[in-house]
Design a protein around this nucleic acid. Structure first.
Length: 434
RNA sequence: GCCCUGGUAGUAUAGCCCGGUUAGUAUACGGGCCUGUCGAGCCCGUGACCCGGGUUCAAAUCCCGGCCAGGGCGCCA
């Protein structure tokens, strides 16, 4: 390897020669010295070169910002540098020169716009703060996965290419599939349900979904990942909600416990949300909103303003950033949801965090006749869904589930202003590259 | 998909309303001075009006279209 150590693993006064490699973060001449800051993903150190160092100094003179170099040297016992570990080099090799000036600001003094940053994302991610977001996200997912694995959930991979949408919606990307029309999934929903019919009992699916909605907002991506969970043998949607809040808490707990330095870098304080999460139910939600001065007609869905108002309400009354909204009006929900018997409400649940919808889910209808009936009620063509419904003729367990948007969860936990920061290469209506 | 705002050196911005100067500033970059610098400091220099059309003697500035960007709504995760 080019290096004997990660920069972050260097300690003052380490014995012997160390070899490190990384990007030049700063070059400064002062007196008889040339100071070079060197960074890899683990940290930053200062390489101090003196004018009388002959060949090493000559190489140092040619260095520019973001050159990739390898350095061999001795770690000083007592660094004078405030940035941390200081190295007196015995060799410097330039492995790859950087053009200059760089196409975006890397000094941190003039913050480039997000669009410019995304055009040059690989360089942008060299900024430890930007990289920290991805590290934290990886930890979040690991925490969630650990929870699922240790609670009997089997990881599955459901198809991304599908022959029909889950709700016959128009927001699907079309793909040519050997001359036939196929689509990128908007949600692995129906296939998860079929695996419940199969008896897998408890599953999760980490994977992408696509939405062909040309949304221009700080919280939408055309391609995003979700942690989709489905479980059987449930009594009602409350069982699903319990798993969901445990899952979210487990993910955040992992972040809090292992990402201290990344969180400090971002200047964010994260707390593990206390359980249980508050639950607001329809139709009571209408009353709460009415009291808050917002009228939503009976049977109508919430709009964005209502969502935000409820979040404030929960913060004030329950001191909580996360909460469930349950028992959505059946008429605004898709055919596969389970109705609460004899009512107009569905066993449908949203998880709201930081005022943003993080997931939808709830109990699904598992009874064949009801599914058929509901497809009719929604005015859908039964033929289009036979690939799904037919399987329910042969014994299906009561089940439910949800899908949590991973970028959204990351965004909310870290208080990011734009979801595009929560994914390395975001896909938005105008952006397909890099 | 609708609505609002914007597009000026590599980056980030001022100027635009009220058309006419060498288009200002910061940072990056190049050169110099100084000094163990750590957002060092000081001096000098290079470098820009998104694209197309229109109005006008004259357009960065006014009008129209396009593309792109930021945001609000819709929809959603």
């Amino acid at each position: 390897m080019l290096r004997s150590h990660y920069i972050g693993d260097l300690r003052p006064g380490m014995a012997g020669e160390v070899r490190i490699a990384g990007w030049v973060d700063r070059v400064k001449d002062v007196g008889k010295f040339r100071f070079i800051w060197l960074r890899d993903r683990s940290g930053l150190c200062q390489v101090t070169v003196q004018k009388d160092q002959g060949e090493v100094y000559d190489v140092a003179l040619r260095l520019g910002l973001h050159d990739f170099i390898a350095v061999g040297g001795i770690v000083l016992e007592k660094p004078i540098a405030k940035v941390g570990v200081e190295i007196k080099p015995t060799s410097i090799m330039i492995l790859s020169k950087s053009d200059s000036p760089l196409p975006l600001d890397v000094s941190g003094l003039v913050k480039s716009g997000l669009s410019t940053r995304l055009d040059w994302r690989p360089i942008d991610l060299r900024d430890p703060r930007n990289m920290a977001i991805l590290k934290i996200q990886a930890t979040l997912v690991r925490g969630m996965q650990r929870y699922l694995d240790s609670n009997g959930f089997i990881q599955v991979f459901t198809p991304c290419l599908i022959g029909a949408g889950s709700e016959g919606g128009a927001e699907l990307f079309e793909v040519d599939y050997f001359g036939r029309r196929a689509y990128l999934r908007q949600d692995p929903q129906l296939h998860r349900q079929l695996l419940m019919v199969a008896g897998l009992d408890r599953i999760y699916d980490l994977g992408p979904s696509w939405r062909a909605e040309p949304s221009h907002t700080p919280r939408h991506l055309c391609e995003y990942r979700s942690c989709a969970v489905e479980l059987s043998f449930i009594e009602n949607e409350k069982d699903v909600m319990m798993v969901e809040e445990e899952l979210v808490a487990a993910g955040i707990k992992e972040v809090v416990e292992t990402c201290e330095s990344e969180l400090n870098l971002l200047g964010v304080e994260v707390e593990v949300p206390k359980r249980p999460f508050p639950i607001l139910e329809f139709p009571k939600v209408y009353e709460i909103l009415e009291d808050l001065g917002k009228r939503i007609p009976w049977g109508e869905d919430l709009d964005r303003e209502a969502e935000k108002l409820l979040a404030e309400y929960v913060k004030e009354n329950y001191d909580h950033d996360f909460f469930f909204i349950n028992k959505f009006p059946y008429r605004v929900k898709p055919f596969y949801v389970m109705k609460e018997d004899g009512t107009e409400w569905a066993r449908s649940t949203d998880l709201i965090g930081g005022g943003l919808e993080l997931s939808s889910g709830g109990q699904r209808e598992h009874r064949y006749e009801r599914i058929i009936q509901q497809i009719g009620e929604k005015g859908l063509n039964l033929e289009d869904f036979k690939w799904f419904t037919e399987h329910f003729r042969y014994g299906a367990p009561p089940h439910g589930g949800f899908a949590i948007g991973i970028e959204r969860l990351t965004m909310v936990i870290l208080g990011l202003e734009n979801i595009r920061e929560a994914t390395p290469f975001p896909r938005t209506p105008e952006r397909l590259l890099p």
